[in-house]
Write a protein that binds this DNA or RNA. Structure first.
Lengths: 144, 144
DNA sequence: TGATACTGTTGGTTAAACCAACGATAACCA
DNA sequence: TGGTTATCGTTGGTTTAACCAACAGTATCA
């Protein structure tokens, strides 16, 4: 909530799932605001990041790497393509697939977004020491 | 993601905000499924829980206790009222306010949902020891 | 070769979290 | 006391994220 009055009723405040979802909501809000300031959505960053890691990839692979449904990858890639941040070409080895690739502008955008996302980590984790941050990530990891 | 292939690209997997949002998404999915099986949405549980803690309360207070926008409280309360889980009456001391109150059926529903939500905690936190659960909640708390 | 699986697309749905503007009422304080 | 400011609940929206069914085309495997 924008106004974090921390009035939350005890029934809710005692739930781990409540704390988790509150923390994630706050984190999401900060991330979203910072990405929006650079003209990107969460899905767009995720696809760009996956492309940065994978290099040219099919949409199906992008979906797996960015944890996106393939229909959402379709929309996001169309969007990125319209903004000339990626190019698409047929895969010569598998004509079911499209190979998606970063353009120079796309790679530059990703570089900018990576910096923004790093800032977001600091904002979100501001209350924790480095050791606590590691512990948190480790525990969250065990939830999946 | 339904298919948790944990393929996530390193750029994403290294982000605390990513782990946080993945864990929260999973937790949310489990909670949503369990609540839906009892015929309730997340907003509905939150309002019922707030009523259980506060007793008769104005919609504004419910919004603060459940971290809901007051417009969303309006919709949720209308819904609960249509299902005879709450009653509404004018506050004699402040005619701007409506006092919302659990019916017997509403209290019974809340009792059932509380049990369901407790089960959800166990499902979501299954990978953690009790000490780790406390640590996690403590760290999440420091993020807000 | 025939069944099965995968790819990308069209065209949706739902929950959650937000927002502007309004009329009515209460609170504040000059 | 009167006038400003704040609060309450409502109408009527928006956006993001996360999902789904069904289809045609292509690859794979038995």
């Amino acid at each position: 909530m924008r106004t974090m009055n921390s009035y939350a009723s005890p029934r809710l405040a005692n739930l781990a799932t409540w704390q988790l979802s509150r923390a994630a909501a706050r984190s999401h809000r900060v991330l979203h605001e910072h990405l929006a300031a650079e003209g990107a959505s969460g899905y767009e960053y995720r696809v760009l990041a996956a492309l940065g890691d994978l290099g040219p990839a099919s949409q199906a692979d992008l979906g797996r790497a960015a944890a996106l449904d393939r229909r959402d990858v379709t929309h996001t890639v169309r969007d990125l393509h319209a903004r000339k941040l990626v190019i698409r070409r047929a895969d010569p080895d598998d004509s079911r697939q499209m190979l998606v690739e970063l353009t120079t502008a796309g790679a530059a955008m990703l570089e900018r977004l990576d910096l923004v996302v790093d800032e977001v980590q600091d904002v979100v984790l501001a209350g924790l020491t480095p050791a606590q941050r590691r512990t948190l990530v480790h525990l969250l990891d065990k939830l999946s």
